[in-house]
Design a protein around this nucleic acid. Structure first.
Lengths: 339, 339
DNA sequence: GTGAAAGCGCTAACAT
DNA sequence: ATGTTAGCGCTTTCAC
């Protein structure tokens, strides 16, 4: 473990000055070809790598993005994350990740910790607790310090920044339309995420689609809650009635339980009951029958979020403008729906 | 967006020297209480946060860990990752993540990029391609530069560093024992990861358990491959014979397909066929019937890996010693096996 | 074409 | 108790 190669060391070894070495390595025209060559070869020999911290300190930027994600075990977030990571790397950025675990405090702490010159900006999806508390002072403070933020999926309307969302409302409308067209008329709405912005939008889409078809919304066909326990017992009761012939489930838990309970009750899917769920990840294909889903194109959301942030970082505007990109979802028809 | 507060700025505003400010903020005994108070209050007022890059440069350490993961969509890795992140944060470390996507090149590039003073050490699981190529020069080089590495799950025997693994061999033995005890005698082994170290160990465990019970290993009950397509057709053929009464599936794809095909063929699980799979994540519970699994305790693996790395970072030994921690797996009995 | 020097923001040994 | 200074490794302006 020899001492790390630095400009200083190389300069000393070669009997030239630090600045000459620096310029030679950055291929400056100020330096003669022979010197350049000599320096570059020696640097390679010594396995010289410029110290990132020093460069960052000098440049006042880190080429690092802070990513804050509510829960990496959720395949949707995992997909978005991998999209961010990929796009960021391609542009020469590192990614520092914090998992908020849906906690406001952790989210805030992460931002405090990283906003000290560790990252150039943030990409995040708002923690559940933060949305519940409707707390956004920490976002505003970061923005005031001049660090850009891009929010995705779970956004806060009140914060002025770039955003990437899915057309939750439209997606629900389309899904319910599809159910109706395939012959369903008694369609239930299942939601365990009624405290999240996305959950509410999806529920509104359901209502709109029914209205469009002049189907009365029956409140006993609607389960909206933020407690999974509460949800399970209510769903069991609802399915036992045998009245329902279609389901729109707006989150993973709801989708899963709908499938599982229906199978256990011996309800034939999709003959007697069609199910569409908001879901990402491979597990929906693994069920038997497989689950028809609304896919949110996680990787693309990640790409777009990274693109927006890096754009802001590299093209500082005098008067910043803010974009909201809407990514189209896709209805993936599998075995839990009829054609 | 006012100019960022720095020591220099505060010093100027307060008419004192930079070092006094620095010491006052770190609560040094050299500074008088009134001055301390004055500085600390003013710093808070100005929302002063010490610049991390400057501190890192000074300290020659970054309190940052580089994590390289083959695939974050795999719930096992997602769990380990969240374990690492949590443990690292608790100890005051940031986590920079790269996803190798099973590619040797990406893995190597990530390590090159981060080893320039960006991270203090690495936690990683070896990419599939790297294992196939049996390439480990990049690991050795990093170690030579003095950066510690902790490998988890997919390790390389030839690299001298700390490691965290699961008792793959023993887990398979136990799982097969369980199948035998519950009355299975024609047990198949399914593996789509026969190119990975872990896959091979699990296969060996299967063989040992059968030998222990003096059951002849029948090669037509064993599917070992690294191609999922090849796997699917062979599995279909095997299940169609109706000979098998037990299955050990050593990876997610194998577990999934075993369940799906068996259900489609109308085979009764667990009455006619018991299945145990190596699997993490919630999806195994979502199947109907739910899948009995060998769980690898991802979060604990992550905790331990972080613990080992940070320990090495904070207690530099003259002659380094290397540990390999084995995390016990757990057989989670669900509906795809009999008691 | 090469080198000296200042400075990024911070810490710490060393004055005063 | 407070201040001066040097230095972490690098870039960049300005002299020579």
């Amino acid at each position: 473990m020899k001492p790390k190669a630095t400009l200083k060391q190389i300069a000393k070894d070669l009997g030239i000055s630090v600045s000459t070495v620096s310029k030679a390595l950055s291929d400056s025209h100020e330096i003669s070809d022979p010197t350049k060559l000599r320096v570059q070869e020696y640097a390679k020999l010594q396995n010289y790598k410029p110290n990132t911290m020093a460069k960052n300190l000098k440049n006042q930027r880190t080429n690092t993005i802070g990513v804050i994600i509510p829960n990496i075990l959720n395949p949707f977030f995992a997909k978005v994350f991998s999209g961010i990571e990929q796009a960021a790397n391609k542009k020469g950025y590192n990614v520092i990740t914090y998992i908020s675990n849906e906690s406001f405090l952790k989210e805030k702490q992460a931002m405090d910790l990283l906003s000290n010159g560790t990252v150039d900006g943030f990409i995040l999806s708002v923690a559940e607790e933060t949305q519940k508390l409707h707390e956004f002072s920490h976002f505003k403070e970061i923005l005031r310090e001049g660090l850009p933020i891009v929010m995705f999926d779970r956004i806060m309307e009140d914060v002025l920044c770039d955003k990437v969302v899915v057309d939750d409302f439209e997606s629900s409308v389309e899904a319910v339309n599809h159910l109706i067209q395939s012959g369903c008329s008694k369609i239930a709405l299942l939601s365990c995420i009624d405290n999240l912005s996305v959950g509410k939008h999806r529920a509104l889409g359901y209502e709109r689609a029914l209205q469009d078809h002049e189907i009365t919304i029956r409140s006993n066909y609607v389960i909206k809650t933020d407690s999974e326990k509460d949800f399970d017992s209510r769903l069991k009761k609802l399915l036992s009635t045998g009245e329902i012939d279609g389901i729109l489930a707006v989150d993973e838990h709801a989708s899963t339980m709908a499938m599982k309970l229906a199978i256990q009750l011996g309800i034939k899917i999709p003959e007697e009951l069609c199910i569409i769920g908001f879901a990402d990840g491979v597990w929906s294909r693994r069920l038997t029958p497989s689950l028809s889903t609304i896919s949110q194109h996680g990787p693309e959301i990640g790409h777009e979020a990274a693109r927006l942030l890096i754009d802001k970082l590299e093209n500082k505007q005098e008067i910043p403008t803010y974009k909201t990109t809407v990514i189209k979802t896709e209805l993936r028809q599998r075995e839990s729906t009829r054609k």
